[in-house]
Design a protein around this nucleic acid. Sequence first.
DNA 1: GGGACTAGTTTTTTT
DNA 2: AACTAGTCCC
Length: 788
Amino acid sequence: MNTDDDENAFMDAQMPLSRRALAARPAPYLDGLNSEQRRAVETLDGPVLMLAGAGTGKTRALTARIAHLLNTGHARPNEVLAVTFTNKAAREMKDRVAHLMGTGADGMPWLGTFHAINVKLLRRHAELAGLKSNFTILDTDDQVRLLKQVIAARGIDEKRWPARQLAALIDGWKNRALTPSQVPAADASAFNNRGIVLYDDYQVRLRDLNATDFGDLLLHMVTVFQSNPDLLEQYQRWFRYILVDEYQDTNVAQYLWLRLLAGGHRNICCVGDDDQSIYGWRGAEVGNILRFEKDFPGAAVIRLEQNYRSTGHILGAASGVIAGNRGRLGKTLWTDRDGGDKLRLIGHWDGEEEARWIGEELDALQGGTRGGRPYSLDEAAILVRASHQMRAFEDRFLTIGLPYRVIGGPRFYERLEIRDAMAYFRLVVSPADDLAFERIVNTPKRGLGDKAVQKIQRAARANGVPLVEGAKIVLAAGEMSGKGKAELTRFLSLLGQWHAEVLDEGHNHIELAEKILDESGYTAMWQNDKTPEAPGRLENLKELVKALEGFENLQGFLEHVALIMDNETDEGGAKVSIMTLHAAKGLEFPVVFLPGWEDGLFPSQRSMDESGETGLEEERRLAYVGITRAEELCTISFAANRRVYGQWQSALPSRFIDELPEAHVDVLTPPGLYGGGYGAAAGARGDSRIESAAASANVYNSPGWRRLQSRSGQRGTSQPKDSFAPVIDLQAVSAFAEGDRVFHQKFGYGTVLGTEGDKLSVGFDKAGEKHVVSRFVTSADMADNTPF
DNA sequence: GGGACTAGTTTTTTT
DNA sequence: AACTAGTCCC
């Protein structure tokens, strides 16, 4: 422990804190808390489990608790360890605590994500993990590329034993805090009996490269603490109070890490909701939260059960569904917001019709003809089980000109051009970064293909030097010729110049970054690229350079950026949000649509196949999370037919639909379509909600569903075409004429084939003929003109 | 080395 | 269907 933020504090750490500041200060953060929240805020000492149901004011209680800890002098800001999973959650907590305390934001150095906090710890104690403190953090892509090398080095056929699979296996072990030597014998057969050996190889390679992957950050620190009791004890003393958000999402490694650090004061407060545990598939252990009272004997368990978010019907429907799960800690959410609309249920012929219907509903909501008031699109969200469901909505909304935003999807720092640019920066800052070298040595094309790279690798290995040095050796030995020789010489010389500039104290890192992208030919590569994505990529590179402004230098940027994966730049007017159920956790919307409730899609077949009853329960929690996102209006829908991987498939409504308590549901019956299936089934089912499997059998035998099934044979008979008129902004007269070249964000370049009001029919070069609203396209000349 | 073609894959996602 | 990764051929 030797950095500035602690040192001063250490000096007066001798003085008993509690005595120092017990004089009661005003505590405005306590105002308006209910009695349970208040107990959660004021029960400071000893282990506390805060079971906070959806919408019960969890974040409020958590931030008030931190404020209370500080305000009463139980701890100084830097003695509180507060962990979240996402940067977003960390940021929100920081902001809210700062707001409550009326101070600046950065008083709490140990409030952050598991990963950010462990990077900080590991940089301090890197040598104890066999690393140097300037280690790099590999992302998933680097990880897979490295694993490919490791697999190849053992002479294993990568095609039969793919690196991605090995990556998943190793991640699984790391999630369980297992080093290669700790992997249980039962797992020895994994990956063709070579899993453990390859894991070991991989760890050795990482150490050689002075690199870690995400899983290592936790694993290394757990190992360091376990093998250095003195150090652990120091931190145990230091962190007087520990808070953990979303405890139900912790994996074994995170759990062990917390147990180690909480071992001294035992002042650990874990907040979570076992009913919202939806990350089991990536190593989260619901068991951690279920076991809390055993792990921490004498723990106070506080239940936040008053829901401030949703109406009674929405809450009732959600409770009815989640009641089907076993092994819950059990909470009974209640609200005094009675009345409101019942949850709506509607069936559709196919996925396209479902999208069309939701589009119409959104228009009606905006116009005030649905629900109690006019709604903004910002207040509505469509939550899907799998991201491929999004396309139907995007296509439909593009066609009718309904603004939408997709949340999630490829993140900024995962994009090809950003990763390439980052590799350049990494290499300039650390010339020994071999992975970065490999990535960009031939990007843009320099005539340095596999052959040349192999030569360089051989030379580097033979001399025990990084690839950059290997390349110099290859050149000196005269092993290169022609274009490759000239280009490699130039590349190395540029690298040298840039690196020298980085070392120069007076350099401007933003100018340097631009220079690197420019002189390397990287920018030019995309300027000369005529694919529809190229302008967007140049735009992203500009963004990247802009992001540098927030940092002192390139090193600082690289250090922090590896952990920041969120990218929420959102401008423009009101838009409906489309996202997965997973991405929706922690969010809330007045209006929520939950499409695609069909057995096989939701609950997902794969989840049930792979994890059986456990998988089904996690899916059910996902349903619970979905419904509880809604404040005022929640609409569940399903389609009888859906295109899956290009094949039409018919499906039965989700078994979860059958678990919705009838009293809270309105079954909508669109004209000409099967309806009432749910009602009929619900009547036959009686009231046995727990025996959901038995109950769903009834549903599938009910007259409604048999009718549904018999109809799935005759597709297209009475299917309404795109007959309804989309909302047309009368002022938006198309500025395009037949024959114009246009550019569209999603479809790329195309030629206008016809116009109709503000709607265009465009023959896209890549995507074929589409009907789009004119404001979604720009003139091809304008789009092309994106200087960097 | 680069473009065109082919085969194989396809949940959920953070860091 | 749509995308990627890999192969083949010039």
